[in-house]
Design a protein around this nucleic acid. Structure first.
Lengths: 109, 109
DNA sequence: CTACATATATCGGTGACCGGCATATGTCTG
DNA sequence: CAGACATATGCCGGTCACCGATATATGTAG
C-alpha cells in the first residue's frame, strides 16, 4: 500500500467524507506535505471500491453540486489497522538499527 | 517511498551488506511477509545509488563468488529517519481515528 | 550429474500515481 | 455582467517502482 492510499483510508477512518473533503483532510493529516491530485483521488477511490475497502455511503446535492459520500467498509478497517501495525513494526526496527550504527559521524568517540 | 525500498534501507541501517544477504534480511525484518525479487533488489539498489542514498562500500570475492557490499550513505540515513518519523505519525493518526469510529459493530453497547 | 543455495544482472509487463484537461455551479469583486 | 476563485467530480496519457521470468556462474550435497 502506498502513502496516498494510506492517507486516504486514514482520512475516512473516523467518519464518511466526500471526495473534495478527502483531499483537504489528506493535506491536514500530512501537515501540508501531500496534496492528492483528482486523478489519484478518484482513481484510488474506484480501485478501493473494487477491492471492497470503501463503499459509497450516500449521494447528496448541496448547493446544486452533486456529492458522493464515501465510507470505510469493514475490510478497509481491517486493512488499515493491519497496515499501521506493520508500518509501526518496520519503523521501530529501522530506528533500532539506526541506533546500532557504529560510525555516528565523530560522536561517541 | 514504497515498502520494498523502506525494507531495503532498514536492512542496511545497522551495517553494510551484499545483495543476497539483503534479500534474506528483508525476509526476516518483515517476518517472512516480503520476499524481494532480484529484479526489485538490484533495480532499487541502482536507483538508490543514483539518488545518493546508497553506495558500494567494497567488492569482495568469497569462495570464488563475487560480492558487492552496499552501505547506507548519509542522505540515506537522513531519508530513512525522516520516513520512519512520517510513517509513525500517520500510523498514530490512523489509529486515533479508528478509535473514534462510532459504529464498532455491536461493541460498546 | 543433478539439484539446490549462493550471488549478480537484465528485460518486458503491470499498475499506482502524477499532471493536465474538461465540466459545472456558487460566490465574491469590480 | 465579466472574471476569478472555491467547490466538486471525472477522464486520459505518461512515468516509474515493482514483479516475474530468464540468464549466468560457482560451491556443496545427494
Amino acid at each position: 500500500m502506498q502513502e496516498p492510499t494510506l492517507l486516504l483510508l486514514t482520512a475516512l477512518a473516523d467518519e464518511p467524507r466526500h471526495g473534495y473533503a478527502l483531499m483537504q483532510e489528506v493535506v491536514e493529516i500530512s501537515n501540508g506535505r501531500v496534496r492528492l491530485r483528482t486523478g489519484t483521488l478518484y482513481g484510488a477511490l474506484e480501485r478501493l471500491q473494487r477491492e471492497g475497502m470503501v463503499r459509497v455511503e450516500r449521494e447528496e446535492v448541496v448547493d446544486g453540486r452533486a456529492r458522493k459520500v464515501y465510507a470505510l467498509a469493514e475490510p478497509g478497517v481491517t486493512a488499515l489497522a493491519e497496515e499501521t501495525a506493520r508500518l509501526r513494526a518496520v519503523a521501530t526496527e529501522a530506528e533500532r538499527r539506526l541506533a546500532l550504527r557504529p560510525g555516528l559521524k565523530g560522536a561517541t568517540a
